[in-house]
């Protein structure tokens, strides 16, 4: 009995460690490959990433920051208000709107992006960062609204009622009482919106045409797809690391609340 338990603990540790190494290996390798040069180690690959003819430029990074900021901000505002409405109010059309929002998940991406391309043209938003951000916000809504609705539902009703008793207006209650209570949900929604918008490839590929509007992801991928001869793999890995480091750092810091928000809110029942 004792023996078999010790053996199973061994089996668990060895399997877990081997798999962990397997999953971490590509990440570690890309970091290593990005600083390896012909003669040793250095930052030459990063240098080529930023200076070669079809490499990335500072304004590409600025574009990515703008798109991420707009998407995260917009998603948080829309999802907070919407989640509050779905979680705490009864109004005609509530269930229909909620179902429609979730239906965005069923009709994903590629199938409506062609139409969105035409629609943004009609709105005068073609080839703009604002137009791209609006589309990215829309694609974030099913997950974010679902998450925020559940977060608001989980807040005890007494909290809200006592605030209203004290004469807090509805919006004041939301900002001062409810928001602190749903913080884990907000963190999860915000982090998810950032990770998606920062690394999104397909939507910018379709919605942005001019190279000076490109996001970093688009610019880095362009180094691979636009190269007709040989690919500069080492500079590509530098680009991968440059793209991934902000995400990895954020993720490592927020993993706890992210996973907690996920387990408490996202999948209920």
């Amino acid at each position: 009995m004792f023996d078999s338990r010790a053996r199973s603990r061994w089996g668990y540790s060895v399997t877990g460690a081997a798999l962990a190494i397997l999953f971490l290996f590509p990440l570690l390798w890309s970091g290593w490959a990005s600083v390896r040069t012909g003669s040793g180690f250095g930052l030459e690959n990063y240098d080529r990433l930023f200076t070669s003819d079809n490499g990335i430029r500072p304004h590409h990074v600025v574009n990515s920051v703008v798109v991420s900021a707009l998407t995260v901000g917009g998603t948080l505002v829309v999802a907070t208000l919407g989640g509050y409405a779905f979680g705490r109010f009864r109004f005609p059309g509530r269930d229909l709107l909620f179902l429609l929002t979730l239906a965005i998940l069923m009709v994903p991406y590629a199938t409506i992006l062609i139409a969105l391309y035409v629609l943004l043209g009609w709105l005068g938003l073609e080839d703009t960062l604002v137009g791209l951000s609006l589309v990215l916000i829309m694609f974030q809504l099913p997950f974010s609204i679902f998450m925020m609705r559940n977060s608001f539902e989980a807040v005890p009703h007494e909290l809200e009622e006592s605030a209203q008793m004290d004469g807090c207006a509805s919006f004041g209650t939301l900002v001062r009482i409810m928001l602190p209570a749903v913080r884990p949900g907000l963190v999860t929604v915000g982090l998810f919106a950032f990770l998606t918008s920062w690394s999104e490839f397909f939507a910018p590929l379709i919605l942005l045409n001019s190279t000076d509007r490109f996001t970093t992801t688009l610019a880095v991928v362009n180094m691979r797809t636009a190269s007709h001869g040989s690919i500069d793999y080492a500079a590509l890995e530098a680009g991968v690391v440059f793209m991934a480091v902000p995400c990895l750092v954020l993720f490592a810091f927020m993993q706890r609340s992210y996973v907690r928000g996920f387990t408490s809110g996202a999948i209920k029942g």
Partner: peptide, 14 residues
Amino acid sequence: AVGFASASLLFLGL
């Protein structure tokens, strides 16, 4: 946490 496009480029090199 790594974007899917970045991950694809990572594996292209790998």
